[in-house]
Design a protein around this nucleic acid. Structure first.
Lengths: 222, 222
DNA sequence: CTTCAATATTGACGTTGTCAAGATATCTAG
DNA sequence: CTAGATATCTTGACAACGTCAATATTGAAG
C-alpha cells in the first residue's frame, strides 16, 4: 500500500469502462468475491483442506483477515461456495466426456464417464475431497444447492444414457436405481479410495499397472 | 520405559479399596489412554469430527487440557489411535459377517459382506468417516498401521473367498485385482455417498425402499 | 524412607473464527 | 456537483484451540 490517500487498487483496469450493474457490482476491490474463491482454491491445492482457513484465504488475496466474512458469512460459507465452483466444473467435465463418447455404447460409455469422474478427482484432489466433505459444507446455500443439482443432473444423464434413458425417470424402478447407484458407487468409491491412498498397496502388487489401468479393468469386468 | 513390562498384565484382581478399577497398570488416573479414547469416541459421535478436539476429549474424560498430549503426542495422534480402534472393530465385523456367511456362495457372500461393510458405516458414522479421512491421520503410527493391515486382511480374505481364494495372492493378476477393487469400491462408494447424504434424493424417489434394499439390489445386479 | 521417572496440571503463546466498531469508497438523490 | 446513504473493507477484540515449557503429583524401585 503506497499512499493511503490515493489508494490505487480500486477498479482493476476496467478498460472497457463497462457500467457495472449486473450480478455483483464490484466496489473497493474489484471483485473480491471471485478473487477470494480463486485464492481459496490455490490455498486448498497447495496446503490441503487443513490449511484452508478464512485468514489464509484473505492473506492469499491480500486483504484483511475479516474481509471474507462480508462475502461468505463464515468459513462454512466460503467452503460451500468453493465446493459449488467444484461441482460446476465437475458437471462440465462429465458433460464433455459424455459428449465425446457419443458414438460409444454401453460399457464403453461407462468407461469414458468413469475415467472422467476419476480424472477430475485426480486433477483437483483438494476440491474433490472438499466437495464430498459433508460436515464442512452447508448444503442449503443456494449456490451449492444449485451446483449440486447441476452435477447430479450431469451424472444421472451421463449414466442414464448408458441405457438409452436420457434422464432419470420420475419414478424409477428399484432395478433402475440400483444400476445407477451401482455405477456411481463404483466410480466414486474408486476415486475416494485412490485419493486416500488406500489402493497403493494393491497397486504395488501390480507392476506396470497404473491406476487408470486398474480402473479400466474394473469398469470392464462386468 | 523401564517398567513397561509391569504395564503389560499386572494383577487383574486389584479391585481393592483404591480408586483403581482398571486392569492395566494405573498411575494417576487408572488408564487414561483407554479413557481418552472412549471419551473421544463419545465426543465424535455426539458432536461430529469438528467437535472432536484435544481439549474436548480431555474435558469429556475429566482431565486437564494438556493431558492427552502425554498419551498421543498431538491431535493427529489421538485421531490416529481412535481410527485404529475403528479399524480393529471394522475388521471384527467383517470377519463375523464372513464367518456367518460360510454356507453361502458367490453373490450371496458378497451381499453379506457388503451389508456388514455398510452396516458398520451406519452404526459408527463418525468413526467410519474418521477412518477414511487420510488428511487427519498419521498412517505411520504403529497402532494405526497395524489396525489398517488387519482391516485390509479381513476385507481381502472376505472378498477373496468369493472366488475360493482364501487370501490375496502374492502376485495377483490385473483381473483378480480388478474384481477385488470392484467389490470394494462399490460398497465403499455406497457407504460414503450414503453418509454424505448424497443418496437421499434418489431414495426419496423410491418409496418403500430402504437404503439396505437399494444396497441389496445394487449388489445383486451383476 | 528416599529417589526417580512416569503421569498430570498449570500457564503461556500464536493461530483461528467471529463479532463489533470504525474507516473508506461507490452509488444515488437533489 | 454536493451530500448523505450504502456497500465494502479494516481494525481491534475475544474465546477456543493446539502446543510447548515449567511445575506438581504419584507409583514403584532402591
Amino acid at each position: 500500500m503506497a499512499n493511503k490517500a490515493t489508494k490505487q487498487h480500486p477498479s482493476r483496469g476496467k478498460a472497457a469502462s463497462r457500467p457495472r450493474k449486473r450480478s455483483k457490482a464490484p466496489y473497493h476491490h474489484g471483485d473480491l468475491h471471485e478473487a477470494l474463491l480463486k485464492a481459496a482454491e490455490r490455498v486448498l491445492e497447495r496446503d490441503g483442506l487443513a490449511g484452508l482457513t478464512l485468514r489464509a484465504a484473505a492473506r492469499e488475496a491480500g486483504v484483511s483477515h475479516a474481509a471474507p466474512a462480508h462475502h461468505f458469512g463464515d468459513v462454512t460459507g466460503l467452503l460451500s461456495e468453493l465446493a459449488a465452483v467444484g461441482f460446476r466444473r465437475f458437471a462440465a467435465s462429465l458433460r464433455a466426456a459424455a459428449a465425446k463418447a457419443v458414438p460409444a455404447q454401453g460399457d464403453a460409455r461407462l468407461l469414458a464417464i468413469g475415467m472422467a469422474y476419476v480424472a477430475f478427482a485426480r486433477e483437483y484432489p483438494g476440491l474433490f475431497m472438499l466437495m464430498f466433505r459433508g460436515d464442512r459444507l452447508d448444503i442449503r446455500r443456494p449456490a451449492l444447492e444449485k451446483a449440486l443439482q447441476e452435477s447430479n443432473m450431469a451424472l444421472a444423464s451421463a449414466i442414464g444414457e448408458l441405457r438409452n434413458e436420457a434422464v432419470i425417470p420420475e419414478r424409477p424402478t428399484v432395478a433402475q436405481a440400483a444400476q445407477m447407484v451401482r455405477s456411481w458407487s463404483m466410480v466414486h468409491g474408486f476415486a475416494t479410495l485412490l485419493l486416500d491412498r488406500r489402493l497403493d498397496g494393491l497397486l504395488a502388487l501390480l507392476p506396470e499397472t497404473s491406476a487408470d489401468d486398474l480402473l479400466s479393468a474394473m469398469l470392464n469386468a462386468d
